[in-house]
């Protein structure tokens, strides 16, 4: 088994959800990630990321987030294990982020 990183990206152009919707979404995430844990394929639940951030560029150029010029923002990550990239991609299906215009990037984690 190899480890794979799920990078969750959220669509910033979507309207802000209501508190009720957020609670429902939380449950969707919980059920989905636990479904992977139930297959014993979750390595690290990972973390969600706050929307505020900074980007440092050459010459000490610092820009603030959120990045209104792009419609995608990094929302979080998790680590799963699978035999292949295909299997890992299969695990990513059902990710609640997809329901809200977001996406999941699946990348194998290189071994040192």
């Amino acid at each position: 088994m190899k480890d794979f990183l799920f990078v969750f990206r959220a669509n910033t152009e979507m309207p802000k959800p209501s508190p009720e919707q957020m609670q429902d979404t939380m449950k969707l995430w919980m059920d989905w990630i636990s479904g992977i844990a139930a297959q014993n394929k979750l390595v690290d639940r990972g973390n969600r990321l706050e929307s505020a951030g900074k980007v440092l560029r050459p010459g000490n150029v610092i820009t603030d987030g959120p990045y209104t010029e792009i419609k995608e923002t990094l929302a979080g990550y998790s680590i799963v294990k699978a035999d292949s990239l295909e299997e890992a991609t299969e695990l990513a299906k059902g990710c609640p982020g997809l329901l809200f215009g977001g996406n999941v990037e699946i990348r194998e984690i290189g071994k040192m």
């Binding site: 059920d31 844990a37 139930a38 979750l42 639940r45």
Partner: peptide
């Protein structure tokens, strides 16, 4: 269901996975 979800996130066990389902 949510308790079983948390249980699995703490520690995998086949019985917890079955009960959760």
């Amino acid at each position: 269901l949510q308790y079983y979800n948390h249980l699995l996130l703490l520690e995998y066990s086949p019985i917890a996975a079955l009960n959760r389902t």
